[in-house]
């Protein structure tokens, strides 16, 4: 699944963020395999998404979020 599929409050562990479209800046802010990402809030239409990636609080657009592969964190 991808970050775009998360529901509010849910978290996941990033498995793949190698897509060319993902800006380097995002990777540098911690969007790397093995790091945790939590969905804090979404704007209407699920765009943009307000996330907590590895401690960094950032907002990104839906299109990019859909390119970040994750697996759901165990409860």
């Amino acid at each position: 699944m991808t970050v775009a599929d998360l529901k509010k409050g849910e978290s996941g562990i990033i498995t793949d963020s190698s897509s060319d479209e993902i800006p380097l800046k995002l990777l540098e802010m911690g969007c790397l395999p093995g790091n945790e990402v939590e969905l804090i809030q979404t704007a209407p239409f699920n765009d943009p998404l307000y996330l907590n990636i590895n401690g960094s609080h950032v907002a990104i657009r839906h299109r990019i979020a859909a390119l970040i592969q994750i697996e759901k964190a165990d409860e």
Binding site: P23, L26, M29, Y50, H57, V58, A59, I60, R61, I64
Partner: peptide, 11 residues
């Protein structure tokens, strides 16, 4: 038009 949008939400 590509989407490079990334914005930090500071404390």
């Amino acid at each position: 038009r590509k989407s490079y949008f990334v914005i930090e939400m500071p404390n």
